[in-house]
Design a protein around this nucleic acid. Structure first.
Lengths: 114, 114
DNA sequence: TATATATGAAACCTTTTGGTTTCGCAAGTG
DNA sequence: CACTTGCGAAACCAAAAGGTTTCATATATA
């Protein structure tokens, strides 16, 4: 439980599962039917997604319906977006600017002085 | 090479490395110095980040300077943001709406008809 | 030149992943 | 009730991950 969302979405099969059920919940069989791997393997992926909070499974008769909880992706969004300014701007000029900073403030270490 | 960015950022150590060098490039030793694991282990993480295109390493004398290439995160941003509307809106009402859609169009399978 | 620094890479190890088979059980159905 | 469906879980496996130690090599420096 409380598995890392970053790790949960690292696997392409799991991202595909999320895409499948994002707008339309499906039962376990329907999900596994879209893949070439066994139902058991898909079930394991679902378990990992559940542990990350990205999927909830509710019983309906003998079926278990998989619901995507995409709001859990917000932690990923937050992490990525904090760096957006680093690639949204003209990177060349930004890098030139940062290089200047780096060359003027060498005392902090990291890159050894020559 | 051409390693998956999602998998590259799945590891917390690698995300921390990226955070360290995002605004200020560092040499390999400086990066590994911030972790309790061995330099060799950090070097392996750097290798994975490099293979994903998230880090570039340039030689400078006997040092190798690690530069973060955060624009590579855009593929992650794109994937996540396509689902933002699913959690930005009042989810309860959206889900109710989708449930209606689901109950009216049962022919497509997925959830078996009762 | 001898020594110290900064890396790269190989060999080896343990745990985690991603899969497969197999078996058991609960819930609908004929 | 017997049978089919839809799952969940266990046992087992090979490969990948994440680490460690060790060794070789290139670049500075005293």
């Amino acid at each position: 439980m409380q598995r890392d969302v970053f790790q949960a979405i690292a696997d392409p099969t799991r991202r595909e599962i999320l895409g499948m059920i994002a707008y339309r919940s499906l039962n376990v069989n329907a999900v596994s039917g879209h893949f070439d791997i066994t139902r058991a393997a898909v079930y394991k992926h679902l378990k990992i997604l559940r542990e990350a909070g990205l999927v909830e499974i509710k019983q309906a008769g003998r079926e278990r319906i998989c619901h995507a909880k995409m709001q859990k992706l917000e932690v990923v969004s937050d992490w990525v977006e904090q760096y957006r300014k680093l690639w949204n701007q003209k990177l060349d000029s930004l890098e030139a600017y940062l290089d200047k900073l780096q060359n003027s403030g060498k005392t902090k270490g990291g890159i050894s002085d020559k």
